[in-house]
Design a binder for these strands. Structure first.
Lengths: 178, 178
DNA sequence: ATTTACATGTAAGACGTTACATGATTCT
DNA sequence: AGAATCATGTAACGTCTTACATGTAAAT
């Protein structure tokens, strides 16, 4: 049911069309929290409207329909966000690969870690710059919490990769190899 | 296809039965990287064996079959881990809720953040203790990289939640509320 | 003797991805 | 005029969850 609440959450931030929502997933959510293709979004929007959690507030060109969350939808979203999910399941192919690094030989592991350190540094800097810009533009503090979390995740990933590279070096030193 | 490689990766660490693998997902992987139920694991193990990527190396009591990764399986696993997946998709219901905090009013957001700060601190300490113990026991450095990443993720989550609470306080001060 | 843990499997339904399908509007 | 983008939808297929199903071995 997460898709339903992801859509409801995005609509709670601002009204949007299915097309808009697909781009929001792609740009803002996919790398951190959730994803959906348009083929999943459009039918779910119709269900949300049928269930009275969202409603069409504007018809635009090319059949565009802008949806907004309803009061009932907001109550249902709040209930879901406040409900502590005890046994969370994370699916992250990238993290899975990092967890399986120990199955590679040291040179392969080093290669992955170097790519990782580089990639996460870039992503961190990109996010940090975006946050700074949003702050300059006067965006409210609460709307930047998510971006800050994303930035810190990539920072952590970067620092971990650097630390892991150091660790492999010193382990190799102790074992007496070149 | 991630499940296939998750299983291959776990078998690359050590031979295991479907039952063992289900427990490894539950205990080591579910909160960080991937998950699978036994109903998915057993059929996939049969497919891995049929494809020559894993093989039964021991028959135990109660129909237990211990699988090991084959040389072909190891090559295929290495190929997958080294292959940079350009457009990663993360599904994390917990992170999704944190990303949607801005849709709540400030008191609700504070409540979630306090729970978050507490929960992630506990999880961090649990992991840190486990790592220390493994280190004392002389586990090789490379096998602890994943645990270290998990610990750092929770540490980051904790620090972010604390920071976010501070942020909400100072935003409230500036707006002149109690 | 009973309970708990071990151990494997299948089936139905929900969820998610990829491919197919169509058409309007805007930009160059 | 042609290309890119906007915009919505369905269908087939693959993945994942939940429920059903069965039986053995170890622990109390």
């Amino acid at each position: 049911m997460s898709l339903r609440y992801a859509l409801l959450g995005l609509l709670a931030e601002e009204p949007a069309s299915g097309y808009d929502l697909a781009r929001k997933f792609e740009r803002n959510l996919r790398r951190y929290a959730w994803h959906a293709q348009h083929s999943q979004i459009y039918p779910e929007l119709n269900r949300l409207a049928a269930d009275g959690l969202a409603t069409v507030v504007e018809q635009g060109p090319r059949g565009r329909r802008t949806y907004a969350i309803t009061d009932v939808g907001r109550i249902e979203l709040r209930r879901w966000v406040l409900d502590p999910n005890d046994e969370p399941v994370v699916r992250n192919e990238h993290t899975l690969k990092l967890f399986l690094l120990s199955t590679l030989d040291v040179e392969d592991a080093r290669k992955v870690l170097r790519q990782q350190a580089e990639g996460s540094r870039e992503e961190y800097e990109r996010l940090r710059a975006a946050i700074d810009e949003a702050q300059q533009a006067g965006r409210p503090a609460v709307s930047l919490l998510a971006a800050e979390l994303g930035a810190r995740y990539f920072q952590t990933l970067h620092e971990w990769a650097q630390w892991a590279l150091d660790r492999l070096d010193s382990a190799e030193d102790r074992s007496g190899n070149a």
